[in-house]
Design a protein around this nucleic acid. Sequence first.
DNA 1: ATGGTAGCACGGCTA
Length: 269
Amino acid sequence: MKIASFNINGIKARGPALERWLDSASPDLAVLQEIKSTDENFPRALIEDKGYTLETHGQKGFNGVAIVSKLPLEDVIRGLPGDESDTQARWIEATVSTQKGALRIVGLYLPNGNPVELESDGQPVAGGKYAYKLAWMARMERRLQELLALEMPLAVMGDYNIIPQAEDAARPDAWREDALFRLPSRKAFRRIMALGFTDALRACRQGPGHYTFWDYQAGAFERNDGIRIDHVLLNAYAADLLQDCQIDSETRAGEKPSYHVPIWAELAL
DNA sequence: ATGGTAGCACGGCTA
């Protein structure tokens, strides 16, 4: 089973590019981020006419996540549990099954966190974007503990807005104080990894230079001035099934590309 | 320090 993640940055603008990628990569399942659409306005036919089923968790204008799948999606959960007051659409879960077994999938769009606003004592300003990012990651950690307790293969993938290590940025010094790379962000990510996850792309593609995002500005892609912020995390049951993975960098050179590119992993399932 | 680009939606926020 080929599972993938793609931050499409707007379904209304990305229809043709998304179709080209679905046709060429033919993932069995893909989680999408930044659909920037309500559920009602999502152009479902674009997906369903290819034989994919679709589950969306959208909102107007910003954020929004979805799952497209060739297999039926069961037990769908919309929204990261643990805070009823959070209205941002950044999390969706589902289960897919084959003859070989079942897989729980999480698709996530982790908060960016910029601008970083700090009190004089260095603590994030309450109510600010950076405080929201860290609180969201703590809530995510609690939800993942619940999912790990299911003792079944689990893939948690999406746009994490986290540069895990210096080798995951072309110019790490430019990101030192950024919400994507500053120490508290990386610590929160390491806490999640320490629950027992494998970073699939790092396992398959070791070493520097493997990026998933290039800014639209200043010719970042042409200069390969990128960062690796989209990730596929696998629990131990899923990591045992990992056969291959890749970053589909060529989509960034296509017509009207997203600023992110798709990533995928092949599981023996 | 600024401005560089893009999406949604048509003003200003988000990235």
